[in-house]
Structures are given as structure tokens and as C-alpha cells.
């Protein structure tokens, strides 16, 4: 399973909670503080790194405040072939 993370623009967020409902991994929670507009913004709470970077939260976000990144798997070590002419 791919892994990823999201970055939420907390000042743009209106705390509508649509992303909470959309997140299949349940790694989004509402913050326990208020942003400049007086809303409790959504936050990624993902201690076990369960976010898959699926972007469903961003798809339903009415305020376009979510940026999504997906981890790129580290390249596997190339086997070293011996005896093959260059």
C-alpha cells in the first residue's frame, strides 16, 4: 500500500468536516484550536503513517485547502552482474 501525507492550509479551512468523512484511513481529525476565521481546522493525525495519499480528502474539499503528496518508493538496489562485458 502506498503511503503519503497531506498538508492542510489551516487558515483557509472552514472546518466543514467533509474530508473526515471522505478519508478511508481515518487519519484526519479536527484541530483543538481556532484559526483566524474562527473555525477549527482539519488536521492530519497520522502517527502510524497510514495516509495513502489517495487524495479523496482533497477531492471533496470545497475550499481547496489540501495538498497531497505520495511517497515514492526508494529504488531497489540494482544487482551487480559479474563477468558481463561492458
Amino acid at each position: 500500500m502506498a503511503t503519503g501525507r497531506i498538508v492542510i492550509d489551516v487558515e483557509r479551512c472552514k472546518g466543514c468536516e467533509l474530508c473526515l468523512e471522505a478519508c478511508p484511513q481515518h487519519v484526519i481529525e479536527m484541530g483543538n484550536f481556532f484559526n483566524g476565521k474562527g473555525y477549527r481546522p482539519a488536521m492530519l493525525v497520522d502517527p502510524r503513517h497510514e495516509c495513502t495519499g489517495c487524495a479523496l480528502c482533497a477531492v471533496v474539499c470545497p475550499d481547496g485547502c489540501i495538498t497531497v503528496y505520495r511517497d515514492v518508493p526508494a529504488p531497489k538496489a540494482q544487482p551487480v552482474l559479474k563477468g558481463v562485458p561492458a
Binding site: G4, D9, R12, C16, P62, G64, C65, V68, V72, A74
Partner: peptide, 26 residues
């Protein structure tokens, strides 16, 4: 180590909208 999957589109202005929380106009 990671790639950008989704970001706010350029054709949207930077402005905050006046829409109510959760309004699908946004």
C-alpha cells in the same frame, strides 16, 4: 522521496471565499 499528487489549481484565485463551511459551490 515523495511526489505531488494534488494541489490547489492555478485558475482559482488566492482569495478566501465567502461560502459557508461545506458549501459545494467551493
Amino acid at each position: 522521496t515523495e511526489k505531488l499528487v494534488y494541489q490547489r489549481p492555478d485558475s482559482l484565485a488566492e482569495l478566501y471565499t465567502h461560502y459557508c463551511p461545506g458549501c459545494t459551490h467551493g
